[in-house]
Design a protein around this nucleic acid. Sequence first.
DNA 1: TCTGGGGTCCTAGGACCC
DNA 2: TCTGGGGTCCTAGGACCC
Length: 351
Amino acid sequence: MLHVDLDQFVAAVEVLRRPELAGKPVIVGGRGDPSERAVVSTASYEAREFGVGSGMPLRIAARKAPDAVILPVDAEAYAAASAEVMATLRSQPGAIVQVLGWDEAFVGIETDDPETFARQTQAAVLERTRLHCSVGIGDTLVRAKVATGFGKPRGVFRLTAENWLDVMGDRPTIDLWGVGSKISRRLAALGISTVAELAAVDPAALVADFGPKMGPWYAQLGRGEGSDVVDDTPWVARGHSRETTFQQDLTERSQIEEAVRELTSRVLADVAAEGRPVIGLTLKVRYTPFTTKVFTKKIAETSDAAEVVARALELAGRIEAERPIRLLGLRAEMPMPEEAREGHTPTRSGW
DNA sequence: TCTGGGGTCCTAGGACCC
DNA sequence: TCTGGGGTCCTAGGACCC
């Protein structure tokens, strides 16, 4: 199968409608105002040379790359460009497409010559959308996904059981898709620093440290193994959430209640758009400087907005109001339709 | 320097039931 | 003094991804 990943997708979409930005450092984040509390969503390759990366506070990014053009996030434009890319992938003969996000997808295909198919796919995407992409070829989802990184930018790379350890063996475990900073550090503490070392571990040996599912799964990741099925079943969302970072921290109970009402109505708009009810709520509170607390509550299934608001305000009643609040988030959980409940819908990608 | 916003899934512990 | 065993549900928190 193939993994297709657009090159610096968001920045590329911005450059398409502002050609004068080509070759310049471009940063997209927040409302495009570096004096506000916000972070970088995407940085163009030129901006990355200044040390700017996604997740970085916009204020810091602007300091590192003083000449960069800073643009607001335009989610609608990216969604529209993404839809065109995905439609192009689906129009390739024999292709099964599993969308992973705005800018990437797995493509299942039966072919003796995946490199040629990959090049054809890149050319089709470029012709229809004027966007460049990189393609990974693999015999499992994990290998295809990891392979794409070696193809960037605009290239093609193949990773299979044959060359997996040659290519990945000496690399740190954090290079694996699904191993982040925390897990790579915990693995290192167990004497497992490289992919080859992880690949050699007995899966059962990791159960004590990482649990019955995650432990064996990490060992499998080290070998690049896992599912090899591209599943194009339409995605069914488990829930919807909204978060707001306040430019000034909230301190008053009345401010909190107002913010919760606002969040609830935005979340409910997303839920109602699907015509599904709510069965649970999670309220997230970020205090300053950086401690997060969540309150979760199952509720009786309801589509009544006033009822959901009342339940959300109950949750908000648990907030310790004496500490300044930097962020509030609200998530609504929705019931899953019967046919999506048991393994029929794609779950966590690559599992 | 001070950390977005939208998601998913896993784990652990307590409550509760039979 | 020693307090079953198995199961499910709920809550809180952690980790990861784009």
